[in-house]
Amino acid sequence: MYPRILPAIMFAALSQPAIAQMQSAEVTLTRIDCGRASEPMPLAAFDDTGASDAMARALVVSCYLVRHGDDLLIWDTGIDPATSGDPDGGFTMTATLVDELAALGIAPADVDYVGISHYHYDHTGQARDFPQVTLLIGAQDWEVIENGAPFIDRSLFAPWLDGGGSVRKISGDLDLFGDGTVRLLAMPGHTNGHHALLVRLAGTGPVMLTGDLAHYTENYEKEGVPTFNDDRADTLASFDRFKRMAANYHATVVIQHEPADVGLLPAFPEAAR
């Protein structure tokens, strides 16, 4: 009884003007270069079955700008420019995220949200350059940051740890704008609070950004679990869910660290629509 009645009641509660407003927001997706591997990286640790022991790949670091009407979301923030070229980090960058956005006429103060797929350094390096935003992050990942794990650079999160910035700690999925066009998807395993992103575009169709569910094409196809993941079983369950969703939605899957997937979206500064 209730599963059928409740959706109807909820739908009826929305006025027609509200529905029209939800549907009228234009959504675009822009891929931004936020770093590249200085040289091919050994991939043995990215699959605990040994499938990648002999492999090396020059991975990329990607950030994304999502426009939803007048709202702006940055998805992942790349490496810290101060670490560019550091052999321990393994990535270099030629322009900061702030500079790349400036080329689009966007200042840090224009950004409303920064969404973080997970707390690793190559996804959070420039978050603090947007101190006024609402930070979107998995609740379990934020707990790790708050507790000050030794591998976390807490200075990257100073605007929110100091109490001045707003943090939205996400448990499960989040339909950010309430219209289904931008959804943070809980995909735990790489970290316990790890999320992927689904963006529905009017022309291109659904696009699913993996976060670090997978790091390169073979990793995605063979469902390789890195030795440094938080939970193996959760990773495999997330692979299953992600792939089923991608198939059901006929989505374009973009593996964020895969160089070949850069071409699945228009070249900067153009946006997918």
Rank of each mutant, 00 (worst) to 15 (best):
Y2P: 07
P3F: 09
P7V: 11
A8I: 12
I9S: 06
M10P: 02
M10I: 11
F11S: 10
F11N: 11
A12H: 10
L14E: 12
S15Y: 10
Q16G: 05
P17F: 09
M22C: 10
Q23G: 15
Q23V: 10
A25W: 06
V27K: 00
V27H: 01
T28H: 11
R31N: 11
R31W: 12
G35H: 04
P40W: 13
A45R: 13
S52I: 04
A54Q: 14
M55Q: 12
M55R: 11
M55P: 02
R57S: 05
R57L: 13
C63V: 02
C63N: 01
V66R: 04
D70W: 07
L73R: 03
L73M: 15
I74D: 01
G78C: 01
G78R: 00
G78D: 00
I79T: 02
P81E: 13
T83D: 14
T83Y: 03
S84P: 09
G89Q: 07
G90C: 13
T92C: 13
T94A: 15
T94W: 10
A95T: 13
E100R: 15
A102R: 15
A102E: 14
A103F: 07
G105T: 09
A109K: 11
V111M: 06
D112K: 01
D112M: 05
D112Q: 04
G115I: 01
G115P: 02
I116A: 07
Y121I: 14
G125P: 01
G125T: 03
Q126M: 08
A127G: 06
D129G: 00
V133W: 02
T134G: 11
L135Y: 03
L135A: 05
L135Q: 01
L136W: 00
L136G: 00
I137F: 11
G138T: 03
Q140Y: 08
W142I: 05
E146I: 02
P150T: 04
R154P: 02
R154D: 09
D162A: 12
G165Y: 05
R168G: 02
D173T: 07
L174Y: 08
D175R: 03
D175G: 03
D175L: 07
L176G: 01
F177T: 04
G178I: 06
D179P: 06
G180E: 13
T181W: 00
V182H: 00
L184K: 00
L184I: 08
G189W: 03
H190I: 09
N192D: 13
N192S: 12
V199K: 00
L201E: 05
A202S: 15
G203Y: 07
G203A: 14
M208P: 02
D212G: 02
D212I: 00
D212K: 02
A214P: 02
H215C: 04
E221F: 12
K222N: 15
E223W: 12
E223Y: 08
V225F: 06
V225M: 06
T227E: 15
T227M: 11
F228S: 12
D230H: 14
T235P: 05
L236T: 08
A237V: 08
A237M: 11
S238M: 09
S238G: 08
D240G: 03
R241K: 15
F242Y: 15
K243F: 10
R244D: 15
H250Y: 09
T252I: 11
Q256S: 13
P259M: 10
G263W: 09
A271Q: 14
A271D: 09
A272C: 12
